[in-house]
Amino acid sequence: MRYVSTAALWFAGGGLILMTMFISAQVFMRYVMNDSLVWSEPASVILMGWFIFLGAAVGIREGYHLSFDVLLYFLPAGAKLALFSVSDIVVAAFGAGMAWFGTELALSAWNVKLPSLGISGAVDFLPLVAGGCLIFVFSLERLVRRAAGLPTARFGETEMEDA
């Protein structure tokens, strides 16, 4: 799991760097060469999808998504853990939905050619599918870890690991 998460984070970081290169190239080509790149905008938007959904999935595992813990202050530890598990089940279900319906969207856009890029419209939805799968898997991992009595990271409680 740890390797999957690390790989996803590296992949997402690569997307951010690639996007930086695309936009700088666009500025350079337009201003210096007077020859705008027509693909830099749609390509950047797709890259953004990649690092948002992959990064969001890693966030499930590392517990850096924002949450609101007001009610939980007043509950005993056992009830708290039960509610965290309810949360993880909801997140897992939503991740499964992202993967399932993302696939449906990708299939329906399969034959649509994206303007300026010339590739299949399915690419638009692949980040949603990949991110959804990882969110589902990482949420299950949290449930299993909790059942086994191991700690699970939560927003504001744990320092992010920098592996």
Binding site: R30, D35, S36, V38, E41, S116
Partner: peptide, 9 residues
Amino acid sequence: LGANATPMP
């Protein structure tokens, strides 16, 4: 047409 087509939001 010889212009520099620039897509932009």
